[in-house]
Every structure is written in structure tokens, then in C-alpha cells.
Simulated assay, not measured.
Amino acid sequence: MTYKFLDSFKFDNGVTLKNRMVMSPTTTMSSFYNGRVTNDEIDFYGARAGGVGMIIGEVANVIASGKGFEGELSIADDGDIPGLTKLANTMKQNGTRAVLQIFHAGRKSNDSILRGQQPVSASAIKAAFPADSQEPRALTTDEIDEIIVAFGDATRRAIAAGFDGVELHGANTYLLQQFFSPNSNQRTDKWGGDRDARMGFAKAVIASVHQAIVANADRPFLLGYRVSPEEIETPGIRLADTLAFVDMLANSDVDYVHTSMGSAHRTSLNDKTDHEPIMTKLVKQLAGRKPLIGVGSVEKPADAEDVLGLGADLVAMGREMIREPQWVEKVVDGDEASIRYQLSPSQMDELKIPRAMQDYLKGAFYSVMHFTTDPNTAVDYQNEAAPMEGFEKKM
């Protein structure tokens, strides 16, 4: 069978993908204590490279205060470059493009992870989820400037390490989203205020990263941005806010927009009378100005075709790539019958899933991984947020 997702794709800046399938960021939680790359990470990505057109590597913090969890990658220091170089080379097997997601966790951290330091955010407002979240300290203007510079420095390191791009993690309630949210950003200086003013931090980070690319890249280098369409807090980000934000992205220096949703057919979490898929709204808002990476419970080839049918340009898979590292290769070979759609706990070592990641999958992610030992029916995230989106509340 002929699939559109196997067609090549060319970004406006010249970067070409051999097909339209993307491995979305999948957190392994397997870096060393200082954020340096481990062999477990190399093995995990090595098993999944070569088939998909692009891998977006798991998130890396751009500055020490931005660490959000144990076992997290770092791109905050030049000493990180050798390990990241090995990681990039591993991802780029057989023509797969390698992009690294970079971020600052903001208030989605705690003083244990930060070794005694209080987490920081736009304002001193505690996150609603999880329930034991700590109150952050509001960043000073000097610290905000330092973080903006850190994103540019991280991009320089990603270029030096051989990646084909970076993706700004502006989703899943991390710092970039925190500055845009009326829930977490209640500042009265230039970094807060109305919706347009709350876009200021993201605009400054995009500008810093773009400048680093212009100054350091000797090849076409991608700049992506990931967004979460809604928040469930009040006040919080609503679809109208996100559509305005995406309009800003469409006119910015980013090369693509990547959405974060548990289902590609997600409708509004807050307006139950709105039955139009969010993906459709994003496609309309972008109006061809930037490519869109669609995501959300893509498992079978028909699911990937469906995402393209909704108007997305590229299709991302996360959980299915954990279960089936050779998904694309099996489709190309006409061997779809052997694709794994469930994950056996006894096969995780064979699938090169790091032990720390195995514990996480069997814990917080158990309900979304289709474990062969799970007697429960899979959850449909069309009308509710998934665990990976930063929420812990079912709608």
C-alpha cells in the first residue's frame, strides 16, 4: 500500500526529511546526575534511528535552574558537547534528521531536584498539578535576561554537537508556557500584562536562538516550537489565546510548529460545545505559513495517514516508537502484521528501554502504554488531557 507519510518533506530553510514520520520527544530519565549522556540513551536512540525522517530528542535544560527531573539531559555547559555529539551521531543513522528539544522547567521542578534551590517562574504562583507542587520564586529581570541568553548558548552547543535543529519546549506547562499563561504569569513589568505582552518572553527566546543559528550554523538548521493548546486552570490558556500565539509563530523565525496532545482528534477541554478538532483549528490559523507536526495516539499506519488528512504536514509518534522501534521499516517492507501495538514488560530490555524509563513507564505512564499485563481498556484522550501533557486531572 502507498502511504503519504512515506513521502519526503522539505522545510523552507532547505532541510529535507526522507519521510514525514517524526519520533516525538520521549523522556528516558537516564542521563548522569550532571546531565551528561549515558550509554543507555545511546542504545535507546540507536535502536530507533534510521527509519523515521526525524527524531526529536528528549528535553535538555539550558541552565542549571531549569532542571525539571532527575536523569534529565543538560545542554547548559560546553562540557556537555562531547556526549551530545555522540547522541546526535547515533540519531542520524541512515539519513534520519536529529533535533534536540531544549527548555527550562520553571515551576515544574522542586528544591530536591534543584539541590536546595527554590524553583523559579514568571510569578510566585504554585502550580495546581501535582498537588505537592512547591511555590516558585518570581524571576528577576536580570535572571530572565540570563535565561534568554542561555537558550542561545544552548543552540550554539547543539550546532557544535551536530544536531540538525532545536525545538523550543513551549508546552506541557514548562517555563515558556508559564510566561504565556495568565495563571502563572501575573507580572506587572514588561514581561507580564495582556496576552500580547505575555508573548514577550517566547519572542525573546526565539530571537536569541535565531541569532545563535545565524552566527554559528554552517548548514541549514531547524528551529521548532512546541505548544500545548489549552490549560484547565482558571485563569489559564484557552484556544483563542493559543491561536493568537500560533499566529505570532507563523510570522516568526521558527521553521515549524509542533503540538502536544494525547489525541490527534482532541477537541476543546474547556468548551464542550466546540466539536472541531484542535488540529483543524491550528491548520487554519497557520494557513500554510509554517509546517505543523501533528501528534496524539498515532499507532497504526492508518492513524498517521489520518493526521495528514487533518492537514498536518508531519506526523509524530512517541509511545508507539517506544513499543515498536522498527515501525517505519516494517511499513516499508510490507511487514505491518509484525508491528507491536502492545508492550510486554519482559521485552523492555530487548527493546533497549533504559531501566529508569522502564520504572517510569510502569508507574506514571502505565495507563497509556498498552502493557500486555494491563487488563484495562486503553483511554481515549480525545476529550481529556493525557499524563504526558503536564496535567494530573481527568476531565
Rank of each mutant, 00 (worst) to 15 (best):
F5D: 08
T16I: 13
L17F: 11
N19D: 09
M21Y: 09
S30Q: 04
Y33P: 08
N34F: 00
G53H: 10
E58F: 03
A64M: 12
G66M: 10
F69M: 07
E72L: 09
T90S: 04
M91Q: 06
K92I: 05
K92M: 03
K92P: 03
A105H: 13
R115P: 05
R115Q: 14
G116E: 03
Q118G: 06
A122M: 02
E135Q: 15
P136R: 06
I147A: 05
F151R: 05
F179H: 01
W191A: 10
G192Y: 03
R198L: 00
F201Y: 08
K203S: 06
N216H: 00
N216A: 03
A217C: 03
A217I: 09
R219C: 02
L223F: 00
R226F: 02
L239K: 00
D241E: 00
T242P: 03
L249R: 03
V257T: 01
H258R: 09
A264W: 12
D271C: 07
I278G: 00
T280M: 08
K281F: 04
V283Y: 00
Q285C: 10
Q285Y: 05
G294Y: 01
V295N: 13
G296Y: 07
D306H: 13
G311R: 06
I322R: 04
D333K: 15
A337D: 10
S338R: 04
Y341I: 15
L343D: 05
S344M: 01
K352P: 05
Y360S: 14
S367W: 05
H370L: 10
P375Y: 04
A385W: 07
A385C: 12
M395F: 13
